[in-house]
Simulated assay, not measured.
Amino acid sequence: MCKNDKKQGDAGSEFVMKSCCQSFPDRIGFVDRPDVPMQGGGAVVRDAVETDFVPDPVTAYHEAGHAVVGVLFGMTPVEIVAGSAGFVRWRDNPMPLEAGLVMTMAGDFAGGLAVRVEYRPFDSELAPWLELIRKPAGGYCDRCRIIRQLVVDAGIDAQDAIILSAYRATEVRTLEILRRNEVRAAIRTVAIALMKTGRLTGEEATAIAARYIRPGELKEHRNENS
């Protein structure tokens, strides 16, 4: 889903994923907490209403994918919502760049689990995002965030092939994680819980995921090999 970041400052601040991407102008942006200052990617056009939180299967799996993979990397979710414009609210947990890219990409692949599809976009499908980011433009949807970071890393003048190669490497790492049976079980169970209520607290989602995975496992594994 599309996302938006809360301004980050002191330790303990939060960042929020919300719908706001300029590359999807038909998607409406909304605020679940009007007291939270928002920035980046798009304009807030209305406050949230209850119908925004009616559970949607693909969105539930998508947000569960973000949550479960984030928990694997040692992140702390605060709230997960699976309505028409789902989001995950995270506590401010700095993470290695690779972990952030994988956690972000996990959403779309996890969403595919709801319809039993593993979909990898062709280079031609990624081209419009490369163009948006280089303008610079685009918002904070998953793909925008990933490609923006890859462009920053490679340089604004880097050839498309270099950026796409880095994108594919992130795909490989993300799928390596999501193809693990215990990870899929955690995503599926969190998604089912989301479908019942439309939202979970971070503690609830983490407790559900921890039946199948060990929170912080990938963070610890990275530290052991660094």
Rank of each mutant, 00 (worst) to 15 (best):
V44T: 12
I133R: 12
G29P: 13
C141E: 07
L97Y: 15
L130Y: 11
V102Y: 08
V172H: 14
E203I: 02
C21N: 06
I147L: 14
Y140I: 11
R27K: 11
F53I: 00
R214N: 00
E203M: 03
K18V: 12
M195T: 04
I163V: 15
D153Q: 14
A114F: 11
V78M: 07
E125V: 00
G12F: 02
G202R: 03
E118M: 09
G139A: 02
D5G: 08
A185T: 01
G202Q: 02
S13D: 05
L164T: 11
A154P: 01
A209N: 05
M38Y: 11
G9M: 08
D47P: 04
R91N: 09
G216R: 00
G139Y: 02
M17R: 00
Y140M: 14
V102T: 09
R211G: 11
D32T: 07
A193I: 03
T201W: 11
A67C: 07
Y140V: 10
D5M: 12
K18F: 14
T104L: 09
L200P: 11
P57F: 06
R199I: 09
K6C: 12
G112Q: 09
G111R: 08
T59H: 11
G9C: 03
P94M: 10
I192Y: 13
Q39E: 10
F24C: 01
G74Q: 02
G100N: 15
D5Y: 15
V152N: 08
L200T: 08
I208P: 03
P34E: 00
A106S: 08
G40T: 15
R46W: 05
E98M: 12
N225G: 03
R148W: 11
G9K: 05
M103I: 15
G100L: 12
W129G: 03
E176I: 00
T51K: 11
R184G: 11
L72A: 01
E50R: 07
G12K: 02
A186F: 14
R222A: 14
S124M: 11
K196S: 05
G86N: 12
T197S: 10
I162L: 06
L101K: 00
R214K: 01
T174C: 04
I177A: 03
L194S: 04
D26T: 03
E217C: 01
R199A: 13
A110V: 02
L194K: 10
I162Y: 01
Y61V: 04
A67G: 06
C141Q: 07
S124P: 04
C144Q: 05
L175S: 00
F73R: 02
P121T: 01
Q8N: 05
A209G: 05
G107W: 09
D47I: 09
K18G: 13
P57I: 01
I147H: 01
M17Q: 09
G100D: 13
G12E: 02
T201I: 06
V49C: 07
